[in-house]
Design a binder for these strands. Sequence first.
DNA 1: TGCGCCATGTAACATGTTACATGATTAT
DNA 2: ATAATCATGTAACATGTTACATGGCGCA
Lengths: 185, 185
Amino acid sequence: MSIEFAILGILSWKPLSGYDLKKMVEGSTALYWSGNNNEIYRTLVSLHDRGLVTREILPQQNYPARKIYTITTKGQVELKKWVLSKPTLPQRKHTLLIQVAWADQAAPDELDTLLQEYEDEVYTETLLITAQRQSKAGRLAYLDVSQARTKREAYLWSMIQENETTYYQNELSWVRKLRQGLCEL
Amino acid sequence: MSIEFAILGILSWKPLSGYDLKKMVEGSTALYWSGNNNEIYRTLVSLHDRGLVTREILPQQNYPARKIYTITTKGQVELKKWVLSKPTLPQRKHTLLIQVAWADQAAPDELDTLLQEYEDEVYTETLLITAQRQSKAGRLAYLDVSQARTKREAYLWSMIQENETTYYQNELSWVRKLRQGLCEL
DNA sequence: TGCGCCATGTAACATGTTACATGATTAT
DNA sequence: ATAATCATGTAACATGTTACATGGCGCA
């Protein structure tokens, strides 16, 4: 239900093929999907069946034909309706928190190793995100602020990035505080 | 894979019935599951089949028998192994961010209404969380700090709560900043 | 009279992941 | 030689949600 509109939204910005979408989803940390083929191609078929997108087939020599999907007027109407629908709280699967919950049975150094691994993961992710934003090489990045169509859209996209950034910052300072606190215990 | 250990962890703290677990999961914001029957009962059967828990049946008059699940030594070993396994980044489904991404087509007041709804949702959630923690009436709350078995466990649990709190705080200040920024645009 | 609690569970569906399959092309 | 890229797609599985079912009890 949500990946449908995530895809429809991207198509409202630019007509693309399933392969393009796959790349964008894979390369983005903001979109939480793994970018696996199955769901993307399935979703495109479903969007097409319901008349929310049109499909144009571009044959190529030596390569399989590209299928470019374009949003329809009906699709735009549906998208807008969804965009303004009642928001829900974000849901997160924070598996580490469950690990930490039952970590009292572990030795102090075992626990600290676990937390350091997590700290490293988060830190790497923050580096990856900033790197992604710098890279002008990467055409077709999800929510590339320089590709926004209006000033307001650019602002919205930059704020989405800020949400992501502060989220990881928050995780980072949390895990550091936790490690420190465990030392002093 | 993760709900199994979430449940096994709780059972390592106290033997409980499926119904108890359901209540705990439902009432907790830290655990992200809906607390639906299907998954909990299915998981308990699976844990039992693999010898990670034992089952004791307590018949009652007028009510269906309670089935109390207790962790086994094998279960404890598996749990500890999982607790120390390599952590992964939390994954979140932040649907609102996708809505915001394509909200430039909406009028300023439509967008602000959406964001205010979100702000209200988040704020309500923070109130709910603090209320949950005060309520001593609620026996059997997930990660009730006063029920922790050691000082270190209490500290870990309080830090998990802090993670949750700062997470929503962060969302709250983000959405407020966003609304402010849109006014000034 | 009707609803919610206790406590178990199942059926049907929706969503998401991993791995595989084609088959030529290009880079290491 | 080996792997990755292009571009489509399917099969099998894992996970998660909603709604329903039993059946007596207590409350308004």
